[in-house]
Design a protein around this nucleic acid. Structure first.
Lengths: 168, 168
DNA sequence: CAAAGATTTCAAAAAAAAATGAAAATTGCA
DNA sequence: TGCAATTTTCATTTTTTTTTGAAATCTTTG
């Protein structure tokens, strides 16, 4: 471990900033349904200039290596962080990716759109059941199914467009 | 309890449709972070023509009255259902509100925008900490804070607009 | 290529979220 | 108003999710 890395954040204001940052991203990630540890890790990285290794993150947050590893994996899959080579150190180092536009686009692609695909299957099964049932008010059921179709179609169009509108 | 209400869904296709509907809305609500029971209740109501009472919902889903009451409360607050008077029956009866546009708009207003408000406070505290700390790279920290501001501003604009775009 | 270091995996523990059910509160009818 | 029906509340239980920590795996370099 290199000397710089041993230097703790002792500066009071810097510590307070980090706390606010962690708080901010923990809440934000939890809106997106991501676990606390993921928000904590991103919160630390967001206001850190030099790349941090896994055990630095783990010890700053006092969370286990297991959690840290899982959290970094999630963040990597969302492309919310990237690894950065630090010469003379064998550990991987991470820095935050701060283009939120891309970040949301990845989240939508990875965590939302797959649901819309299975929704489409489910709707077509619904249609079969409605058509197969002569005892029911076809009009009513068909209208409701039509609404679901429009909803998923709109989702499929709007969600990816949403990330594009984020001029950040 | 009136006679009609005792008539169970015995029709096979109608039962299958209900199962698919519940499945659909359970998943959809869970994307929005709402509990399973809320999705189940809306799923039953979505494909039901005549208003259902709380105990009809509870027994169709085999969930407790407590859960049903909580779930209906949530759905009411999102304006995803409304009560409907049924003459000669003292119980409240519910039907699904199917204008998804309004539904999402309420969800955003109720469950998302409040977070953006507290985010704004947190960001202004961050700014204070950065300004109070002469030892740090002001440039770097200010840029990051600026990004957060733009993010919350964009969220505040885009999210309500999103519901408006839903022509459903 | 061995072994020390770094990371990942995963069963078990802990924590958080949701459901239950019974008691309390509310409602509306006689 | 009083009472029975309905609904809500909330402490407890159950279920689900997340974290831990130790073992297994993978990596680097001496």
């Amino acid at each position: 471990m290199q000397l710089e890395n041993k230097i703790q954040k002792t500066n009071n204001e810097e510590v307070k900033l980090e706390v606010e940052s962690i708080d901010f991203f923990v809440r934000m990630m939890s809106i997106l349904g991501l676990p606390r540890s993921v928000g904590e890790i991103y919160g630390v990285l967001y206001f850190t200039e030099s790349p941090l290794s896994m055990d630095e993150i783990s010890s700053r947050l006092s969370i286990s290596m297991g959690s840290t590893s899982q959290g970094l994996k999630t963040l990597r899959s969302l492309k919310a962080i990237r690894t950065s080579y630090v010469k003379g150190d064998r550990k991987d180092h991470y820095i935050a990716e701060t283009e939120f536009r891309r970040l949301f686009s990845n989240f939508i692609k990875e965590d939302i759109l797959p649901h819309l695909d299975s929704a489409a299957d489910r709707i077509s099964r619904m249609e079969k059941h409605v058509k197969a049932d002569s005892d029911i008010n076809q009009e009513f059921y068909s209208t409701r199914i039509e609404k679901l179709k429009r909803l998923t179609k709109a989702g499929r169009k709007l969600l990816p467009a949403l990330a594009g509108l984020l001029k950040i």
